[in-house]
Amino acid sequence: MTTLQNERLRRPAGIRSIRLGDTKVSYVPDGDVRLRPLQLLPDTTDEVWAAHPEYLDATGHLVGSVGGLLVEHGGRALLIDTGFGPQEFGMPDGPLGAIHGGALLAGLAELGRSPEDIEAVAFTHLHSDHLGWACHPAPGGARPALAHAEYLISEAEWERRDLLEEQGMAEQAAALAPHVRTITDGEEVFPGVRARITPGHTVGHAEYVITGGGRRLIAFGDAVHSPIQIDHPDWSSAFDHDPARTAGHRRRLVAELSEPGTIGFGVHFADVVFGHVRQDGTGPAWHPVDS
């Protein structure tokens, strides 16, 4: 990557949009996350991170984005994931250093959309940094900001919502329940948008493949947390439910993202959320795409 691109690896993403023919796809930031690299990717070492300081901020944390993906087509709007919501959280040890959200509604407004414009929310999985505004009210409101929309969740993920309750998220599960419609592998959930069920990070993790204008974009959720995993797909995250299964899927995904006309979207990547994979010297590498 260039010096400018390296700088982008140390800051969270702002609003970024690309076009796929008649479909516009925009990253809508909600906040950011700071992660402890050795704990997030247990197969890495101090030597790995010493060789890749471009990924770390001044405090030695891996910088990630938190937000959603707005898909607009023919006046209609779909949102994939909803950020963390108006809250913040941190832990003294473990992978998660700090996370905060709250900006997604302002980002939608900047893109000319209100929450009421969103006809459906398609979730990649049921972790709190993806459920945010589906469970939290807008300022001054009583209902969740997106409660008017359908909540699209893979069948396998929703069947195991007991895992949410085990994690102390019974309230979030209850907030989601009245709005849920389960979806299956290959189902078209919006014009040009198909679900692809890819268990590993969670039991029913979903990706969304968006096609238009002769190109396709794969919103791969938490199958990959950082661009460094593109170079090293065997490095699974501490948050992965099944690390071996996720690593196998990630190897296939990296090969797919190398194909012509294919773009990836990494919701937790730093300011390089859209990109594609090129073979650079010793192996694959993530290259940002901004239009």
Score class of each variant (00 low, 15 high):
residue 102 G to Q: 05
residue 197 I to S: 07
residue 262 T to M: 10
residue 240 D to E: 09
residue 108 L to G: 06
residue 226 S to P: 01
residue 162 D to C: 08
residue 169 M to S: 12
residue 215 R to P: 00
residue 41 L to C: 08
residue 135 C to K: 01
residue 18 I to E: 03
residue 257 L to Y: 07
residue 283 G to K: 07
residue 88 E to H: 14
residue 261 G to N: 10
residue 115 P to R: 07
residue 162 D to A: 15
residue 164 L to W: 13
residue 23 T to D: 03
residue 113 R to W: 12
residue 205 H to D: 13
residue 145 A to R: 03
residue 136 H to E: 14
residue 166 E to R: 15
residue 77 A to R: 13
residue 125 H to D: 13
residue 166 E to N: 11
residue 50 A to E: 14
residue 36 R to W: 07
residue 9 L to Y: 14
residue 115 P to G: 09
residue 43 D to G: 13
residue 217 L to T: 02
residue 21 G to V: 07
residue 281 G to Y: 01
residue 184 T to C: 10
residue 101 G to K: 02
residue 73 H to V: 12
residue 125 H to F: 09
residue 67 G to Y: 05
residue 121 V to C: 13
residue 64 G to R: 02
residue 9 L to C: 09
residue 237 S to L: 06
residue 70 L to Y: 06
residue 141 G to A: 15
residue 137 P to C: 10
residue 110 E to L: 12
residue 238 A to M: 05
residue 20 L to Q: 03
residue 104 L to Q: 13
residue 255 A to H: 14
residue 83 G to E: 05
residue 141 G to Q: 15
residue 271 D to Q: 04
residue 204 G to P: 08
residue 145 A to Q: 06
residue 91 M to C: 10
residue 142 A to M: 10
residue 165 E to K: 12
residue 254 V to Q: 06
residue 132 G to T: 08
residue 167 Q to M: 14
